[in-house]
Design a protein around this nucleic acid. Sequence first.
DNA 1: AATGAATGAGCCTTCATTCAT
DNA 2: GATGAATGAAGGCTCATTCAT
Lengths: 217, 217, 217, 217
Amino acid sequence: MSTPAPALRSSGDDVETRERLLESAARLFSERGFAAVTVRDICAAAHANVAAVNYHFAGKLGLYQAVMRMAIARMQDATAEGQRAGEGLNAEGRLRAYVQVFVTRVVAGQQGWIHQLMMRELSDPTPALDLVVAEVLRPRLAYLAAVVAELIGCDEDDPRVMRATFSVHAQCVGLMGHPIARRVNPVLTSGPDALEAMVDHITEFSLAGLWALARRG
Amino acid sequence: MSTPAPALRSSGDDVETRERLLESAARLFSERGFAAVTVRDICAAAHANVAAVNYHFAGKLGLYQAVMRMAIARMQDATAEGQRAGEGLNAEGRLRAYVQVFVTRVVAGQQGWIHQLMMRELSDPTPALDLVVAEVLRPRLAYLAAVVAELIGCDEDDPRVMRATFSVHAQCVGLMGHPIARRVNPVLTSGPDALEAMVDHITEFSLAGLWALARRG
Amino acid sequence: MSTPAPALRSSGDDVETRERLLESAARLFSERGFAAVTVRDICAAAHANVAAVNYHFAGKLGLYQAVMRMAIARMQDATAEGQRAGEGLNAEGRLRAYVQVFVTRVVAGQQGWIHQLMMRELSDPTPALDLVVAEVLRPRLAYLAAVVAELIGCDEDDPRVMRATFSVHAQCVGLMGHPIARRVNPVLTSGPDALEAMVDHITEFSLAGLWALARRG
Amino acid sequence: MSTPAPALRSSGDDVETRERLLESAARLFSERGFAAVTVRDICAAAHANVAAVNYHFAGKLGLYQAVMRMAIARMQDATAEGQRAGEGLNAEGRLRAYVQVFVTRVVAGQQGWIHQLMMRELSDPTPALDLVVAEVLRPRLAYLAAVVAELIGCDEDDPRVMRATFSVHAQCVGLMGHPIARRVNPVLTSGPDALEAMVDHITEFSLAGLWALARRG
DNA sequence: AATGAATGAGCCTTCATTCAT
DNA sequence: GATGAATGAAGGCTCATTCAT
């Protein structure tokens, strides 16, 4: 946004300092949290000068916000992918596709740093969280709610839809605490087919719950 | 050792300094996190001297650990209450009782600070998390797994039990993020009967899922 | 001096707290120096309360001064012993006796703490050093100067006496740095007869120097 | 690394901050000792910021070590000067030259802070003392021992050499306590020719002692 | 754009001392 | 006399930020 377009450097391996800072910051902030990371840590990891963060991002906070904007963009990609995977399928298929995409992203994602960052935002909200809620969470849940409403067979405003949407969402997100889940029950997320089995389970378990709500009328 | 017999003070509001420190620290640590709280903040809130933390708890970390021990004790009380509430009931009743107790505690608890603290431990683990896992989480899930196994009608070691236990647990714990849930969908946890409805929903939704697993054999 | 005569305690092993404090303080101050020893260290070592030092000695400094007074008294004993050992002997014998007593005290003394303390006063003088100079050093050097003057055969005010007295004194005192001397040349002060040999050497070496001064007129 | 090429400053008295810190620290540490000097004192004296010590020397201890390294370098210069002054002379002349150089350096040196610092290391050793012993004291005494051995006329390993070397060394070093020596006997080191007289005395006194050892065989 | 020395606020901790019991 | 909780003044150090180059 406010970042000055940097002049391209001649040296080959010297990617833009700005990019290296973003990368290092994303990794470090997600690993240790905002407060526990020093500007010097980031600059050292990015092979940049101590003052680089202030120059490019107008301070530590500016860098954090840039990282969050990057994370939001990636999460919007994921939402799009979840919807694309369900295109052309019936409601049941769209539910399975949704669970499939998000569970895979959350647990096995090569972009695990994003969810670490989100965990931190949940427990220690910054103004950036509002953006996440508005631009990521709400659209995502709106899509899921539509699928759920079709499966129950009622209007999207029905309170049952909201609660059931929450139930499905909670099971997907619950794996985010998987460093702990792994400690308590390693079988859930470790092993070659564990993740596929988990996707099948959540889908089946949730469908049963949804049909029960449908029957109840 | 931990609580030297206190000489009775005349002034009413003047509880033992040690206790006041624990209280203030619990509140502040859960609100802002370990790093963002200064010893001076805590002492000011507790109307105590700056050096009091070091005297009574051998440093900021010692105070944090004492707070965590307190939190663990309260959570163990909750586990006990959850089990007591299910005594004499069949498996279905014990599941409902379990959900009832924990959802109530998590969302409406006058001890909300505990779950804030746990959220932070999840995203930013300290050595204390091991204690929480071993002394709170594992026993709690072991109890829930027994209930689940009876409802499915299979051995506790069955992989389906582990996954279904996770599904129930995730729905209860998912409410921990309710400051966010509330922003997305206020109806879930706000309002006079919202919580009761949520307990009913989770129980019904989960029972349907469990029965489906039972039918599948 | 200003110390209140303490009432004797009934309990047997409970020597007076005041004495235990003095002992512990003497050991700790000489081992680590005034600044590096905390009042709490001393009280812990003396099995006394934190406030005991202030009660008995009106503060840390008061305790240090009491320790120095004790040290001065012991050094005066040593001076007396050095003189007594030379009684009835000729000047040569009195010189040997003097060297004998002080070298033994300095190096092998069971009261090594005194010399450690004096080393510290030399490098980091406190007001107490004036007392040491006036009540210990000056009398001791006055006695030695008399012996030296007799050996040179001139008046005590002769500048040669002062310088020669210094030469003898310096050799005795030089062993105070013997932890370092030992590192450089272990043979000097280690081994069964090393100390006796050292006393003989200093005496012989110094007598030769003194006679040379005598010859020169 | 240790001395980055400094940009020339306009203001005259504004030497490089790093150098000013070293200077002030050398003076203050030698005057008051490590513990009694605060980082704030040093920075104030050097007209530098409180954080400068940490920036340039990674902490108070790092600064102290840098000061000690500086002291060691200066002492090695002195050793070299002592040897150079004796070049081409016979053993007697080399002894006199040695005494001359060190007595002058120790007492009248414009770098008196070095010996103050060494006094402190003797009474309160830090790891730096090992370095001093290895790189300064041992070479210096080795040189002196060679001179002494030639004067006695025996092998350098002879125990008499070690003891006589100590005797000479002790007389030179004994003047280090000269703030005290001056109090006891001001004539020794004060006055225009006092120092020259002292050098002559130590040389003559020691030569007589050495010849006595030589005669004894 | 980049560099790195310099800045000053602020943090945790230590310590001698005091005071009510 | 003894106790131990409480006090407040520093002290060393870290850190984000600025500034001259």
